[in-house]
Amino acid sequence: MTALRIATGVPGTRILGIGSAQPENVVTNDDLSKIMDTNDEWIRERVGIVERRFAGEKDTVVSMAVEAGSKAIAAAGLTPADLDTVIVANCTTIAPIPNAAAQVADLIGIKAAGGFDLNAACAGFCYALGVASDLVRSGSSKRALVIGSEKLSDIVDPTDRSTAIIFADAAGAAVVGPSDEPGIGPVAWGTAGDLVDMIGMTEERNIYQEGQSVFRWATTKIAPIAMQALDLAGLKPSDIDVLIPHQANLRIVEAIAKKLRKEGAREDMVVADDIVTSGNTSSASVPMAMDHMRAAGRIHSGDVALLIGFGAGLSYAGQVVVCP
């Protein structure tokens, strides 16, 4: 038989633009202490969070994804017609059909987009970025919109101080397109199946986690995954300008940074700490942290950033990217 024709790929991919969206409603630690047994000092010491945003009635996974995605397209200097693929990483939509990606594509105006949702919990954005990069590199997509959007307030028991103080709502997005010089490294991903029950949902559809076990895993196993992502990209720890771990808990972020510095990462490496004012927003946290740091002038175009997501599954994914 005749050999099948395959798509013509491109030499590399890069992030062309990023954007993020948060609800207006700011909730401080003092606000939370009025409805549960906690206080500002306790929360700051345990997780490093000072305030977070909770969705209002009009805010949904889709609406926040549309806002973040639209900003990312504009930041890339593109229009919706320039894109053909939408991936929405999320684990908090209440109705699985229609999927969020199809709704987002329709609302933004990306016609006939290939669209699907991807659930790898808090690692979702880095998983989706890896998939999108490979779709573009192989020629299956010309440009892809990758979004992490979460409304965790829908799946948190508001009186449970072990989760309600941590999780929050937001979206972050990136446009991935072709590049002669590679600007997105290979993804290092996987799951730790023996820890599959460490984070999950109760019968009442509320999130739970085994805090100590997850903390142990994140503070000991994630830095080696980050090293693997660096190695796949052919870089050394000293090459990292910016470290953007999933914003799970400031103490986990600091532990990962400390381990990487022991491996040779620079003291002046910028470390994302967006959790302080945004809380833990699952798959939205990595792109939103990057967007906030860019807006604050803490990272610049061309900086080498190491992204690493980790969460329920337990799942993890990391890659090196060049900041747009």
Partner: peptide, 11 residues
Amino acid sequence: IDSLSMVEIAV
């Protein structure tokens, strides 16, 4: 010492 520091001490 809080519960997370206990984990770090154990490790």
